[in-house]
Computed example of a mutant assay.
Amino acid sequence: MRIIALLCLTFLFGCSPDSSNSESKRTPEDVSLGFFNAIYVDRDVNKALQFVDDPMKKVLAHYHIAASVQRHVLNLSMTEVQMEIEEIDIDFFRKFTDDVTVIVKMQGLKGGEPWIDDRTIRLHKKGTKWEIIEILPEKGNLH
């Protein structure tokens, strides 16, 4: 009888929902789009901080406002931005890699004129959470 009770308890606890928060379940795509959405759409640097590692948090906090982050960190000031994942260097074996590179394609207005550009970022998996660790220098625009 004890064995049955023990098995039932093990089953119940084994099926309980994961106690970790939703941040740890974000994919590299979610983190990338969340970061750019915070900077370009919501224009909220504090919201963007949840997507980056500690050294990048210091850089973003230094600039205080989204317009400054766009100008000085991303080298791209835009409005009315729409984003999509252009490319990600990750595949089926996602669970076995800790570093990925994501290219985010952005369409919007730059200086009032239509503009298409992309930004490449590098993410690192820290535990179960993906964080942006670097914004790579741009290779050129797609204007």
Results as ranks from 00 to 15, higher is better:
1 M>Q: 11
4 I>K: 13
6 L>G: 13
6 L>F: 12
7 L>K: 01
8 C>E: 15
10 T>D: 03
10 T>Y: 12
10 T>C: 15
12 L>W: 07
13 F>R: 04
13 F>H: 09
13 F>N: 10
14 G>E: 05
18 D>R: 04
20 S>P: 00
21 N>Y: 07
23 E>D: 10
26 R>V: 05
27 T>S: 15
28 P>F: 02
28 P>L: 05
28 P>T: 00
29 E>K: 14
29 E>W: 05
30 D>V: 11
31 V>F: 02
32 S>Y: 09
36 F>P: 06
36 F>I: 04
36 F>M: 08
38 A>P: 00
39 I>Y: 06
39 I>M: 04
40 Y>W: 09
43 R>Y: 06
45 V>E: 02
46 N>A: 03
47 K>D: 07
48 A>G: 11
51 F>I: 06
52 V>F: 01
53 D>G: 01
53 D>N: 13
54 D>N: 12
56 M>C: 02
56 M>G: 00
57 K>N: 05
59 V>L: 05
59 V>T: 06
60 L>T: 03
63 Y>S: 05
63 Y>A: 04
64 H>P: 04
67 A>S: 15
67 A>E: 15
67 A>H: 13
67 A>G: 04
69 V>E: 08
73 V>C: 04
74 L>V: 01
75 N>I: 02
77 S>E: 15
79 T>D: 12
82 Q>Y: 10
86 E>F: 07
88 I>V: 02
88 I>L: 08
89 D>C: 04
91 D>Y: 10
92 F>N: 04
94 R>Y: 12
95 K>A: 14
97 T>G: 02
102 V>N: 06
104 V>G: 02
104 V>M: 05
107 Q>S: 11
108 G>K: 02
108 G>R: 00
109 L>Y: 02
112 G>N: 00
112 G>P: 00
112 G>L: 08
117 D>N: 15
118 D>Q: 15
118 D>R: 15
119 R>Y: 03
120 T>V: 04
120 T>W: 07
123 L>E: 07
125 K>F: 07
126 K>H: 12
126 K>T: 14
127 G>C: 01
128 T>L: 12
128 T>M: 04
128 T>P: 09
129 K>C: 06
131 E>H: 09
132 I>A: 03
133 I>A: 05
134 E>C: 01
135 I>T: 13
137 P>K: 03
137 P>R: 10
138 E>D: 08
138 E>A: 14
139 K>A: 10
141 N>F: 14
141 N>W: 14
143 H>Y: 09
